[in-house]
Every structure is written in C-alpha cells, then in structure tokens.
Simulated assay, not measured.
Amino acid sequence: MGVLRSPFLKRALDVIGASFALLVFGPVMLYIALRIWREMGSPVLFRQVRPGLHGRPFVMYKFRTMTEERDAQGKLLPDEKRLTRLGRFLREHSLDELPEFFNVLKGDMSLVGPRPLLMEYLDRYTPEQARRHEVKPGITGWAQVNGRNALTWEEKFRLDVWYVDNWNLLLDLKILFLTLVKVLRREGISAEGHATMPEFKGTKGA
C-alpha cells in the first residue's frame, strides 16, 4: 500500500486531473460566467475563506449561485430565498464547483478529500471530527458519494475520518467515478427541508 498512499502520486493525480478538467470544461465555465454576469451581475465568483490542511485558511472559489438580498435590518435572507433559478441549476449539476479546480492546481485542495467547510466550525468539532483536516480538503470525497447533503453532520464527519485513515489512489479513483455517477443522477444535493445544508452547531453531548 506504500505506493498507493504516496502524497507525491496523489498530487500528480490532482494536477493532471484538474488540468484536464479545466481544458474540457473551459468553454462551459466561460458560458456560465457570462450567464451569471448577465442575470446577477458582479461578482461572478463566490470567494470564501475555508480551512485547508491542518485547518490553515485559504480562499475557495465557486460560481455564485445566490443574490445578496437582505431584509429591512440588513440581514441576508435565508438561502432558499436568495438561491436563483440559475443557481439552483448549477448546484443540481455541481457546476458551481468547477472553479475549485483552480484551487486544486494551486495546491490548496485535492480532487478527493473531506469537503472544506466554514472557518467557524473549527471550534465546534470534537477531537475526532477535527481529524478530517489531516488531509487536504477535496472537490469530492467519501461522504459525498455515500449520501452527500442527505447525511447528518455526524455521519459525514465519520466518513471523512474513515477516508483520512484509509485513503489510497485506488480509493480516490473509485470516488471520482462514483462522483460522476452521483452528479448524473443528481443525488443528495440538499438536506431534507433545506435549500442547502443547515449550519453545523456542534455535536450534542460531545
């Protein structure tokens, strides 16, 4: 298993895979950017600081899917009210995540790994859940092909930690293949009763 768990080979897979994806999806990304600019204006990209390897912050890129509509007090409206029809389409087909291939080329992310969540979650993890940051975050991961947003936070974190302990190149290739199947079937896009995923507020009793 030594070669299959080589960080060098995993990085090579990331660079080759991300470069190929950007070459193939380049025209699609340009079209999406123009549609967002016409329908929602600037900015086209959604930029947010997320925790990477060992919790170190980096700026993650995604296509913008929501407006900046606010209530009378200046507070952002709920996600389901700000999510546009175009944004919903992009999310249903995971097209909003295409700019993350640039994060992979930069070395902030991997093709496969636990999804990068919010910085404020770092203090809410149990010590075991925090182990998900022992590898680079990924565009897709073991939790994404085993339920994605249909899972509870605790279920997702258990799968993330399992991946940390068991990752290898063959598993990564399996996850990439299963991700393609999930995207085509549009499974697990949202948590039940939510447009996206509800906020993680910590594990009860932890």
Rank of each mutant, 00 (worst) to 15 (best):
M1W: 12
M1G: 14
M1K: 13
G2D: 14
G2H: 14
G2M: 14
R5C: 06
L9V: 02
K10V: 06
K10T: 08
R11W: 08
R11Y: 06
R11N: 11
L13C: 13
V15D: 06
V15K: 10
I16Y: 06
G17H: 05
G17P: 01
S19D: 01
S19H: 04
S19K: 04
S19V: 01
A21P: 05
L23N: 01
L23M: 12
V28E: 08
I32V: 14
A33D: 13
L34T: 14
S42P: 00
V44A: 03
L53H: 14
R56T: 13
P57C: 09
F58G: 04
V59F: 01
M60W: 12
M60D: 11
M66L: 08
T67R: 08
T67F: 10
E68Q: 15
D71Y: 07
A72K: 14
Q73M: 12
L77A: 01
P78G: 03
D79W: 00
E80T: 03
L83K: 11
L83N: 06
L86E: 02
R88F: 02
R88C: 02
F89W: 15
S94K: 15
L95H: 10
L95R: 05
D96H: 12
E97M: 11
E97S: 11
L98H: 05
L98W: 04
E100Q: 15
F101G: 00
F102T: 00
N103C: 12
N103V: 02
N103A: 03
L105W: 05
M109Q: 09
S110C: 06
G113V: 03
M119D: 09
D123N: 10
D123I: 02
R124K: 15
Y125Q: 01
T126K: 04
Q129P: 01
A130K: 15
A130C: 02
R131F: 04
H133T: 04
K136N: 11
P137K: 08
G138H: 12
I139H: 10
I139S: 07
T140Q: 12
T140F: 09
T140V: 08
T140G: 11
T140L: 07
G141T: 07
G141S: 11
W142G: 02
W142A: 03
Q144V: 08
N146I: 06
R148P: 03
N149A: 07
W153Q: 08
W153V: 01
E155R: 14
R158T: 04
R158H: 06
L159T: 02
L159H: 04
L159I: 05
L159K: 10
V161D: 09
V164D: 12
W167F: 11
L171N: 08
L176F: 01
F177V: 15
F177Y: 13
T179N: 05
L180S: 13
V181P: 00
K182V: 13
V183E: 00
R185I: 00
R186D: 00
E187K: 15
E187S: 13
A191D: 08
G193N: 07
T196E: 09
F200V: 00
F200E: 05
F200R: 05
F200N: 04
G202I: 03
K204Y: 07
G205K: 11
G205V: 06
